[in-house]
């Protein structure tokens, strides 16, 4: 699916990954996240060679160094917003109460903490997902169509928040999107076509 892709995301940089359906955007994101394994090639995150890790190693990498945001939000339906927010940082052993409070404040989740995901709108759910992903202060935030299920205004608002927080944490940000308008708001845009960087 992917052939000879060469891509680097620098610390603090936000990159939009665009391309038509089936071009391999999501596959690339999944490979970087260690959700899938590549047949060949190398993926490195800081000093870690992701492609050389086994399943447990990739799980550890996701837990400690990455933040993931999906189109379907993928919150845990049986946990409250508060519990969802701290989940990853807690299991990574990287919980920072001050940063957590700041996240809650900046994402506007203060009054929603006791609610369950099903009681939130799509925009609110995505804000919780971003909060969860950034809570352990990852090296890289990966987002797969994070605004795909949101209306335009909400999408702008969510992306604006995500960018602000990425800048605040200083992590890299790689976002898969179909929207040229949203892609244009990020630092750099990379387009994939039939598995290669166009």
């Amino acid at each position: 699916m992917l052939r000879g892709v060469d891509l680097t995301v620098a610390t603090g940089e936000s990159v939009a990954l665009t391309g038509e359906s089936g071009s391999g955007k999501s596959t690339l994101l999944h490979l970087i996240a260690g959700l899938d394994a590549a047949d060949s090639g190398e993926i490195a995150l800081a000093e870690i060679i992701v492609s050389g890790l086994n399943d447990a190693g990739r799980a550890e990498l996701r837990r400690d160094r990455l933040g993931l945001v999906f189109q379907q939000f993928n919150l845990i339906p049986s946990l409250t917003v508060a519990d969802n927010l701290v989940f990853q940082s807690r299991i990574a052993g990287r919980h920072d109460a001050t940063w957590h409070d700041e996240l809650v404040e900046r994402l506007g989740l203060k009054n929603l903490l006791r609610r369950y995901p099903e009681q939130l709108s799509g925009g609110q759910q995505q804000r919780v997902a971003i909060g969860r992903a950034l809570a352990p202060k990852p090296l890289l935030l990966l987002a797969d169509e994070p605004t795909g299920n949101l209306d335009e205004d909400t999408a702008d608002e969510v992306l604006h928040l995500a960018r602000d927080l990425v800048v605040r944490t200083g992590c890299g940000f790689l976002m898969v999107t179909h929207s040229a308008r949203l892609a244009a708001t990020l630092d750099r845009q990379v387009t994939l076509h039939a598995g290669v960087v166009a």
Binding site: A33, L35, D55, A56, A59, E60, L61, R62, R63, D64, L66, L68, F70, N74, L75, I76, P77, S78, F87, Q88, I91, A92, R132
Partner: peptide, 16 residues
């Protein structure tokens, strides 16, 4: 199942 996948995506190993 979605919850288990989310846990795995958040870095919980299969063994754990």
């Amino acid at each position: 199942l979605p919850m288990l996948r989310t846990l795995r995506a958040c870095g919980v190993s299969a063994r754990m």
